[in-house]
Nucleic acid binder design. Structure first.
Lengths: 127, 127
DNA sequence: ATTAGTGTACTATTGAAATAGTACACTAAT
DNA sequence: ATTAGTGTACTATTTCAATAGTACACTAAT
């Protein structure tokens, strides 16, 4: 399905991890759901199995997935994880955005207007 | 002045280029101004001269600086460059922001509210 | 016990960024 | 002509993400 285009600026294993977290937060992956095996996911993403191994390892470290040896890798059943992730990520995104806008010398009022203008202007298009 | 902390996710030469562009857009660097030599800038940034060489090369490719062999590297005198850069970068920042927010399933209305909330919330800055 | 599917742990290689060091070419000032 | 300061062009080495391939350990089903 997704041969995926990766950005050069960030490790692929991390980009894949981001994508899984996004799907979880959006509800496209549900708590307890089994993820594709390391080998299968590697095929789907068009990368080496070792890359997925690192992705899953990173996600487990974050508490997003739980691995059961011999059975597979599953989305966590932690009831609050989804909300926590959504909240944390949202905060990160906004902080980065504001930082970037201020870095080019924009005032808060201009930042506010820019967002409004963009959303109304309809330069949409996403994945 | 800036021993600088670099992020691991992006090439250092590119991060330094970004910083120079930001300073130019903010008016801290003016058209025609001479930049530190490759060697001097390397010392200031705490990196290898080759890294700065790549930074200047990239900036020249973008038309942000002009190099005069034997004299140094100077900010471009192109009258519209500052405005163009500011505009382009601003568009990039906003597009990335919107894309990120939508990736975690937020509606445009929620995006708008988040920005408002963040700016009013008072995490540094004012106005 | 065997098998298939899984996670895990290795070793080795490739490619890009960064580092390190050297050398050359141009400009301005003397 | 010489010197200092500059951009530029090399070669070599290191580090890390990614790739490639192999082997082992655990689980469930048969």
């Amino acid at each position: 399905m997704m041969s995926a285009q990766f950005k050069t600026s960030k490790p692929i294993y991390s980009q894949i991890a981001d994508k899984i977290v996004q799907q979880f937060v959006r509800g496209e992956l549900i708590p307890g759901e089994k993820l594709p095996s390391v080998r299968e996911m590697a095929i789907q993403a068009g990368v080496n199995p070792n890359t997925i191994q690192r992705t899953y390892g990173e996600l487990e470290r974050l508490g997003v997935v739980e691995t059961k040896r011999g059975q597979g890798t599953f989305m966590t059943e932690e009831i609050d994880m989804k909300r926590k992730l959504r909240s944390d990520i949202q905060r990160e995104i906004i902080a980065l955005f504001i930082e970037n806008m201020r870095s080019i010398g924009l005032e808060d009022r201009e930042i506010h207007e820019s967002v409004q203008s963009f959303l109304n202007g309809g330069e949409s298009g996403h994945d």
